[in-house]
Amino acid sequence: MIPEKYIYASLKNIISGMFGSIRGLVLLCIYEDILYIYRANIDNSYGEQLAKIPIPYMKNIQGKAGLFGGKFSFNYDGKEYKFKLPAKAEKFVDFFVK
């Protein structure tokens, strides 16, 4: 799989559920109509897949990108996901918020 768009992000909240609780750096990847969330490793690689979310089923999508970073959030399957984005995340945010 070669993602169409991807970005490293940090979680602003704890995601819990079938993956246990996670917090920290993640990799957000878009491939076709799926958002994949992977655990990001310190060596710039990615680890285990934490979530596979169909983009058409994401609700309340909000995003903002700026010079000093941004934010991205949505609801899916009764859970709220919030991420802090690095600077220059405009292309990723624009994919969702048009």
Rank of each mutant, 00 (worst) to 15 (best):
I22C: 08
A51Y: 15
I37A: 02
Y38H: 14
I2V: 12
K91F: 01
D77F: 11
G63T: 03
K59L: 12
V26C: 06
Y8E: 09
F68Q: 10
K84E: 15
F83L: 04
G47W: 09
I55C: 13
M1K: 04
G47H: 08
Y57H: 13
F96E: 07
R23G: 07
E48S: 12
G70Q: 03
N13L: 06
I14F: 11
F95R: 07
Y6T: 06
N44G: 13
Y38S: 05
M1Q: 05
F74Q: 00
K98W: 02
K88P: 00
L11N: 07
G63S: 06
L27Q: 10
S10W: 02
L67M: 10
L50S: 06
S73W: 01
K91G: 11
C29M: 15
R39P: 00
K84A: 14
S73L: 08
N75M: 11
K71N: 13
L35R: 06
G66I: 00
L27N: 10
G17V: 12
K82W: 13
F72E: 07
Y76H: 15
K59E: 15
K88E: 12
K88M: 11
S45A: 03
V26H: 04
S16L: 08
I55W: 10
V93M: 03
S45N: 10
Y36C: 02
Y31L: 07
I14G: 04
P86K: 07
V26M: 02
I55Q: 09
D43E: 10
K88I: 01
Y81M: 05
D77P: 02
G66A: 01
I14N: 12
I53C: 03
S73M: 12
K79G: 01
K98T: 05
K82Y: 11
F68G: 06
I30S: 01
P54R: 09
G24P: 13
V97Q: 01
I55H: 09
G63I: 04
I14D: 13
V26T: 04
N75K: 14
M1P: 10
Y38N: 07
S16R: 14
K5Q: 10
R23N: 13
K84N: 13
